[in-house]
């Protein structure tokens, strides 16, 4: 099926199987490989992107859900010369270790701060527990989210 939608503000149109996960549309058809494949069954959060402003697991969104949608990926969250506050805080706190899960972590954190500008530790844990990090960077993730919240507050 042909489906037209926006990715990082740019209009896109792809002709793919209706059931194809957004993850593969992004990676294989649009060449946006910043969104990572971890498990394919929403157990890890590595493929988190924003769909119409909400964090979703790209491995669970089918192409047939995308008509008219707006997708934001890690490539569109900020620019190298103007990082998103979450990305800026990630650098400051040197969150990443191997880095594989981090685009999903950052997209989930940005969505959290959109909904809750000043989350508590418990609220961070509740929102971020579906994003696994095998390197165990969780303390730095939490600290960076608090720092990003302060940056966004201004």
């Amino acid at each position: 099926m042909k489906v037209s939608f926006k990715v990082n503000g740019a209009a896109q149109s792809v002709d793919v199987a209706a059931e194809m996960p957004l993850l593969w549309v992004l990676r294989d058809h649009l060449g946006l490989t910043g969104t990572k494949y971890g498990c394919g069954i929403a157990q890890c959060g590595a493929c988190t992107v924003h769909l119409d402003g909400q964090a979703v697991r790209a491995c669970q969104v089918q192409a047939q859900e995308l008509e008219g949608a707006e997708v934001l990926t890690i490539e569109g969250l900020g620019r190298p010369e103007a990082l998103h506050a979450v990305q800026d805080a990630w650098v400051e706190h040197q969150v990443a270790q191997c880095g594989y899960c981090q685009s999903g972590q950052i997209m989930q954190a940005a969505a959290l701060l959109d909904l809750n500008p000043a989350p508590s530790d418990d609220e961070i844990d509740a929102a971020m527990s579906g994003n696994l990090c095998r390197c165990g960077t969780y303390p730095r993730i939490r600290a960076a989210i608090h720092a990003a919240a302060q940056k966004l507050e201004g």
Binding site: E19, A42, V61
Partner: peptide, 23 residues
């Protein structure tokens, strides 16, 4: 809505045929 929307993983889609262990 307070933390992580169910629809982050559980999509609104009438196609029930999911992979084993997928939401």
């Amino acid at each position: 809505a307070e933390t992580l929307l169910c629809s982050t993983c559980h999509r609104t889609n009438g196609d029930f045929d999911t992979d084993p262990h997928a939401p």
